[in-house]
């Protein structure tokens, strides 16, 4: 059920990215999609009542049973995905700024030199 909500959020982001006319809102739509996927990944790794998968000196090695801790792999994936989305977000925002300098507007219906 929660996974379906993630997909709903994903679709909201997609709607925002494809339908809105303002460049900044399109960028925000893509960011919402990214967060939807990140939440999905975190939820896949989550375990109710689980502990943080960090070893600390009193317990030490060896690992306790893996069933007791939250799956750490999706968290690493999300961290990587956030870094990547940071890079592409910075590029998108800079392209938006340059476009605004050229055209004087964020409205994509007025930014139409390419046709056909």
């Amino acid at each position: 059920m929660l996974y379906a909500l993630c997909f709903l959020l994903f679709m909201i982001g997609l709607y925002c990215a494809l339908v809105k006319k303002n460049m900044v809102r399109i960028v925000l739509g893509i960011v919402i999609m990214e967060y939807a996927v990140n939440i999905l990944l975190i939820m896949i790794g989550f375990r109710i009542g689980g502990e943080a998968p960090i070893l600390s000196p009193p317990q030490g090695l060896p690992l306790k049973t893996s069933l007791q801790s939250v799956d750490p792999l999706p968290q690493a994936l999300v961290l990587t995905a956030i870094v990547i989305s940071l890079g592409s977000l910075a590029l998108m925002v800079s392209i938006c700024i340059r476009t605004y300098q050229r055209y004087g507007t964020f409205d994509i219906t007025q930014i139409r030199r390419l046709r056909g």
Partner: peptide, 13 residues
Amino acid sequence: LEASFKYMVLGSV
């Protein structure tokens, strides 16, 4: 810039 923005939006999606 326009082409790059279009490409970037669809590529990110």
